[in-house]
Simulated scan of single mutants.
Amino acid sequence: MRLRLLALCCALAAPAFPVWSDTGKLPLTGGISTVEGTAGGGITPWALIGTQATEDEHGLSVSASRLRTRDYGLDTLGLAWAWDDRLELSVARQDFDASPAVALNGLGFAVTPGQHIRMDVLGVKWRVAGEALLDSDTLLPQVAVGAQFKRTDAGSLRPVLDFVGAKTQGTDLYVSASKLLLAQGLLLNATLRYTNANQGGLLGFGAAAPGRPSRSWQPEVSVAYLLRKDLAVGAELRRHPNNLEAVGRAAGLGSALRQDTWRDVFVVWSPTRQWTLTAACVDLGRVVPGVTRDRRQRGLFLATSWSF
């Protein structure tokens, strides 16, 4: 419902802004679409505003991504609208293959085989200072603030979330600073996220005592190096609050619900100004290690996006 609502809002807003993006940005300076729909790297938002829209223009982008690890899968569809290279609105629908969770039935739950968790993410980002390209020869970074409103449909896993005291709705707040060193072909980004999301929100938000119910500040960093004008490589790191582990320990599960840091190494290619293709090697750490025999969830992330 929220996905359709934001798409409708974007369509209704378009006639109010007579200039679609026609000049466009330098390749890759709009970032790519994250798994949460916001412009940035694959797993963390940047201060850059997505689409090809520059000053007094507005634009749209659509994206799709697929992540496969040893035990899990995550598919994401996203849509974003931007105006004046200052405001970005985004929406994403995530579909998480949580099939291993059927192991929880041994604890008395009734998880449906092949269970999927779905999450809607509505995002807003506002550039508050700096301009990445124009300020590339100064120390001033581009700075943006943003919010992501998330709602999770856990299906037959809902009783598990209720057991650990995790809510199915939450809001992430963040501030990002991106510095483009044009002469060196380097982009640096740092993000601070105020969140209580478990695995980005796919496992709910917060936890009952003795877990952590409230939000905390979590750092995220990215670096990207431009090999040529249409090709870049980079790496990212995203920390998460470890809300659930204490609840698991109190229930005699040890570290079965531990939350680890996400990492990736990526390459992104822009065959045209509007089109980007991304591939990444991803390490999500241990995702609910109690049902996956403590295995680290490493795998391949593929994404494509088109913008104008």
Rank of each mutant, 00 (worst) to 15 (best):
Q115N: 14
L300M: 12
S216M: 03
D71Y: 10
T138Q: 09
L253V: 04
E57Q: 10
V267A: 11
Q184N: 05
G254Q: 00
A251R: 09
S156L: 09
R86F: 03
W20M: 04
L157S: 03
H58D: 10
G30M: 04
E245P: 06
L67F: 14
G59Q: 13
L237M: 14
V124C: 07
W217C: 00
L226Q: 14
Q218H: 00
G211I: 00
S305V: 13
D95E: 13
M1Y: 11
S136N: 12
L203G: 00
T276Q: 15
T76W: 06
N243Q: 03
V62C: 07
D294W: 10
L87V: 08
T69C: 12
R258N: 07
L107Q: 10
L77V: 13
S136H: 05
C9F: 11
Q184E: 13
D56H: 11
G78I: 11
A256R: 09
G59M: 09
R118D: 11
C10K: 08
M1W: 07
P219N: 05
S90A: 10
V143I: 12
E131F: 10
V265A: 15
D75T: 12
E220G: 12
A209M: 01
R66P: 10
D135H: 14
R273K: 13
L5Q: 05
A235Y: 02
S136G: 04
Q169M: 10
G59L: 06
S63D: 15
L161A: 03
A129R: 09
R298V: 14
R238C: 06
